[in-house]
Design a protein around this nucleic acid. Structure first.
Lengths: 339, 339
DNA sequence: AATAAAAACGTGCGCGGGCACGAAAACAGG
DNA sequence: CCTGTTTTCGTGCCCGCGCACGTTTTTATT
């Protein structure tokens, strides 16, 4: 383990000079710089994290979190992830302010960001609307030295330093793969999806359809769409089942799975209907246990909360960019036995 | 964020006294101690991790890893987890020495531990044999101030400070659950397991059998056992298939899945046989892609490598016991689409 | 050659906590 | 009351890095 001091001694200079070279702060003779860099490379110098972090304690970090999805149990789990990391980072002089937006409005999100900036946050974690205004805001803040990490939904063209979330297309493919596993005979599938203005829904559906060529036993007979609501989902599912007696499989591609499953039970068709849903949440765990739901796909909500804060902290404390630009969370499969 | 200095000022004493109280090092007047503890509690003092870690840098930590499973690809992934964490901890003055034992001998394992201790390791991560000698050794080292974390296999009655690994019984249950998902009609299942002296194999099998009452479509027709070897597995699977033409499902409960799957292909029965295996490894990923294997259960090998070192470091650097005594790694399900 | 300006470099302190050492206070015994 | 022992407490330094400030050396200008 080499330290700055050791490098300085070897190069015959002082710690300050080595520090200037390592942090590219200039005012160093090119020759000495070359000499120092040679030693640094030869010894494979890695700065000591504890030292860096301690030195960074002079600044006290404050992070802001903006997310929508009030009433969405999936985001409750994301919040738990944030809390976990908040507790951990509390040991490093960090605080976290969370703003949860109910509406889908871009205006609300911008307002939330602005108020956080006024409170003096040093970094942001947001689950952004897919809108150029938000993207521009992220870029603006980045220039001002306030980094942003997107989670759950990405804005690839923005200057966010990282994205933490799933590959939604793959989620849809996985749903199709599960259906195929369960397809002893042909499956007539009804799809209950969410608002198609939300990217994650359409991508899940696209992923699902992309597998239908390969899986000839799967047939989509109908497709309904709602607004992430258990009551709407109940109604739609009831209608779907009434309209199509031949349906023996349902794919719930959005929130509102609880309502939908209730409808299946109300129709007395839970034993004859294969069901694949998203998000492992409290309200539906019982249904997984009872084999009403056969399989659930989940996208590591805890990680979606905890990782963004970690990335922000490391970035601010050590100046390091996150290792991979994309931090795709795994597509998890749950059945009764492993949930 | 309160610091020791602030507490000292409030209590009208010096930093050293507060430090003695917090670290229970004695030589403090009971009255002042009470006064200090009151302030500590009121302010909810949490030591700053960066400070603690930096102070701990005076000692340079050296960790030892002992694992068996040479030639077992699952453990190759565990090794990757160790390497990842080793890289991270290198930034905290830590080094890691790994000893990989080929044989299943208890003697070999003890020898490996002893040689690591002679090299002066401060902590151990081991995948232990289920033997009282090993357990006694762990206890002995614990008394000497060298903590041990077990991984992959536990020794619950020993004084290891934590276990990182799966619930093997649950793994077996999950395999049964997957079989049931795929059971359009009745499944006649052949089981190819590993050495029954190894606890994880027997527990997986027990878990699997425990579900057969619930899942009436599943019928176990035969059970073979080998020694974690692809060639043996190939032979056994071939015999199994030849002996039982009615078999339309196979459960590979140990290593050697590659050989076993090859045998199914050689028999030309890969399209008519449902296959569930363990461990997502390079050699079998192609078979998952081709639907030879229908589902694979995995137990977060990377985490099994990386978590033990993290626990050891935190324990030594901050004196904190790991949060939960057991750190069960999740039972992951992989199909073609999410792998 | 003298002086000013700029470039190059060294030093000291702080971040928060652990710990050794020594000083001060309290207490015992003669 | 003095000396010696034990208990109690304060101070200073270290861990490794970042950074402000000050000092020395070099270069440019008259």
């Amino acid at each position: 383990m080499t330290t700055i001091k050791e490098i300085a001694d070897l190069a015959g200079v002082s710690r300050g000079t080595v520090d200037r070279v390592l942090n590219k702060r200039g005012s160093v003779n090119p020759e000495t710089e070359a000499r120092i860099m040679e030693i640094v490379d030869k010894l494979g110098y890695k700065p000591n994290r504890a030292g860096m972090t301690l030195a960074a304690q002079k600044k006290r970090f404050k992070f802001g979190v903006v997310m929508f999805g009030v009433g969405n149990p999936f985001f409750d789990d994301v919040i738990k992830g944030f809390k976990e990391r908040e507790d951990e980072l509390a040991g490093y002089n960090c605080t976290v302010i969370t703003k949860r937006i109910s509406a889908f409005g871009v205006r609300d999100q911008i307002d939330a960001i602005n108020s956080l900036v006024e409170e003096g946050v040093n970094g942001l974690a947001i689950s952004p609307q897919n809108d150029p205004l938000i993207s521009a805001k992220i870029d603006d803040l980045f220039e001002k030295g306030i980094p942003t990490v997107t989670f759950n939904t990405d804005l690839p063209e923005s200057k966010r330093i990282a994205y933490v979330g799933s590959n939604y297309f793959q989620c849809g493919q996985t749903a199709a793969g599960l259906m195929n596993l369960m397809a002893g005979s042909d499956l007539n599938i009804g799809i209950i999806s969410g608002n198609s203005k939300i990217l994650c829904h359409t991508e899940r559906i696209a992923g699902f359809y992309s597998c239908l060529d390969e899986y000839q036993k799967l047939h989509v007979v109908d497709f309904f769409e709602h607004d992430d609501d258990d009551f709407k989902s109940y109604d739609l599912t009831s209608k779907m089942l009434a309209k199509h007696p031949e349906i023996n499989a349902l794919f719930f591609a959005a929130a509102g799975t609880y309502g939908g499953c209730k409808a299946v039970i109300a129709a007395g068709r839970e034993k004859t209907t294969k069901i694949v849903t998203f998000d492992k949440i409290d309200t539906t765990s019982e249904m997984l246990k009872n084999h009403v739901i056969d399989a659930t796909i989940c996208q590591q909500p805890r990680l979606q909360g905890s990782l963004p804060l970690k990335i922000l902290f490391e970035y601010l404390a050590t100046g390091e960019m996150p290792k991979s630009e994309y931090n795709y969370t795994a597509v998890e499969i749950y059945i009764k036995e492993n949930s």
